[in-house]
Design a protein around this nucleic acid. Structure first.
Lengths: 134, 134
DNA sequence: TTTAAAATAGTAATGATAGCTATTAAACGT
DNA sequence: ACGTTTAATAGCTATCATTACTATTTTAAA
């Protein structure tokens, strides 16, 4: 019943690009990188494969305030830190806190399956730069 | 230096609409509601005022996976619960956990200013419906 | 009341993403 | 190895949420 998935050169390269960066790139950035290996790859193909890989649970789509999505080659749930100075989105090396889900279940009665946690602030590097300026 | 803000009938009504619901509506829903009071209000005016109110800290823009934003009339930081069955986004009555921010600061060295926490699962009501079916 | 400029309605433009179609190429059975 | 089937592709065009533009109106301060 379920549609079969075929591994194509395009899909493999798009996945490699995502796996090889921690910068949470946009579809457009992935497209630019992919063109270095397949010059006539179509932007539509990039979007189709990003959605495809998302459905397969191989990557994650991250939706932030801006008008475009970012993609994360690490499909395991993990927390992010957004630097308000340089705009980077950094992965946090921090265990997933299941207690938070338990807390919600107990206080609200809803059945919680997962959660998403994003932090905002100023990253180490930008902090150092700011201190030098003072 | 900063641009002055003027209170207009349109802005007041848009704010009232948002303050009067907990459903985290889209810009289009706000537009439909506003038209009941000002039939010839422009959709652009709705968007301009939503952005305006967001800048003023009166409301929050929520960006989820879909292609459109939702708006929250409660500008205080609070957590949300997304029901994967009915699609509703519910406010959680749960204190903001500042310890999480401290935890990130200690483990990563970044300066954390705020965080955002979203839960996903099946809400009470949908759970009841599912149990009846079984 | 006068006046400067902020906000508006109506419209066109933008930009990320999805849809369409003829063609190409995976991967299965033979 | 070689057809055969059909998913995936390139190269478009279409869509739809949001923003920009402009002449006009409205706010609020002097």
């Amino acid at each position: 019943m379920s549609k079969k998935h075929r591994m194509t050169k395009q899909k493999r390269i798009i996945m490699e690009i995502l796996r090889g960066t921690t910068s949470h790139p946009t579809a457009d950035w992935v497209y630019e990188q992919a063109r270095k290996q397949i010059p006539d790859i179509s932007l539509g193909t990039v979007y189709r494969n990003l959605n495809n890989l998302k459905e397969m649970g191989e990557i994650m789509e991250l939706c932030y305030g801006s008008s475009f999505s970012r993609y994360d080659g690490n499909p395991e749930n993990h927390y992010h830190f957004h630097c308000l100075e340089c705009g980077r989105v950094l992965d946090l090396d921090m265990p997933i806190n299941r207690d938070l889900e338990k807390q919600v279940e107990e206080s609200s009665g809803h059945k919680v399956e997962r959660h998403r946690l994003e932090f905002y602030g100023v990253c180490c590097e930008c902090n150092k730069k700011k201190q030098k300026q003072e």
